[in-house]
Nucleic acid binder design. Sequence first.
DNA 1: TCTGGGGTCCTAGGACCC
DNA 2: TCTGGGGTCCTAGGACCC
Length: 412
Amino acid sequence: MIALVDCNSFYASCEKVFRPDLQDKPVVVLSNNDGCIVAMSKEAKDLGIKRGAPLFKCRQQLKDQESLCFSSNYTLYQDLSNRVMALLARETSHIEVYSIDEAFLSVDSPPSATREWGLEIIKIISQNLGIPVSVGVGRSKTLAKAAATLAKKSPQGYFAMLPSMEERVLKEIPVHKIWGIGPSKADYLLSRSILTAWDLRNMDDWDVKKTMTLVTLKTLWELRGKPSIEDEDPQTDKKGILSSLGFSSPIKEKQELQRAVASYMSRAVRKLWSQNSQTSNVTVFIMTNRFKENYYFKEYSQRLENPSSYLPELIKAALNCLEHLFIRGLEYHKAGVLLHGITPEASVQLDLFSERNNSRDRISLVVKEMEQRYGRDILKPLASAMEDRWAMKRELLSPAYTTCWEELPRVY
DNA sequence: TCTGGGGTCCTAGGACCC
DNA sequence: TCTGGGGTCCTAGGACCC
């Protein structure tokens, strides 16, 4: 059996950990730039607030209820997540950390003791970290996921879908709630009168393979209790790196866009460095407000002659892309940089006529070392070093309770 | 006024090769 | 009118996830 351990309202729960005064209050966490709502405590959910809703549309409602908003504090969430995962790892022979707030665990206990094991996990995480979690158990990841959804509704936060219960339970689950079935596939299934998880489970393999995808076929097998979705290997390097962010206020000037793009590139390159890789393809995109008329979105890619992780060269490529995109007179809301064709540094193929450029390697090395010693922003490319007028809006940020000496919570 | 960011995987179709 | 067969690789774009 497989268990899915899922933190309840994770971001909101993290905010509550160091604010006992908020224990029973509605809490919501906002996206970057304090734009929309990405997480809510149970109390906020009960108010009928929807995930993904823009803040300005529910501001009044939140005010009426004395709820509290927070800007997203990823430093805090990632740190608490690491602690949750470390505790979970002690309770199982195998753990797959699936996302910042979820992990699949293999269930080692005999069936008769599984319930105690699950409840013990909930207790451990709650006592050590103050984070509420739910545990769902099933014969496959997809079944464990479905069980976890039901666990959230149960008072103890635990639900095991035993094989004997599968038919009854799956008949109650609408097809669009199944992990891996998004809006588009749900629509298609509905049009064929496949309404529940049980209906999908009983479809013909070839039919599914032919009219949908292999992924859906695997989902179907999983619903039948046959594990078919493999673990993702956390060691494997990223295949694409994206760094993009909306501006806190619109940008008109090309020069400002250039600074933003240069700065996004230096973030992307840092991710590249952290996995010791090089990139061979740079893409830049810019866009105006997509909710307004005359929406403009355009991207431009440039292939590099040789794979590179040399920041100045990559910034130059990005700025060159920007030249193909920029139109004067528009108000830009967002830009981004994508790196593709990523290869490990060790196996990079140079073309016949180029030589490995040692001085570049040394510059990158010095930058890396200085960042390690003095912190991330000690060196910035000049192209991005001016004032960041467009920088992210985070007006409601909570302290970095666990990762910054100055911001440790005080006990009086 | 204000509407997130960062990923993965799959498929179709074109270019190219023998 | 007739116009091989079987591959690989790459890219764009869709779908889905948290």
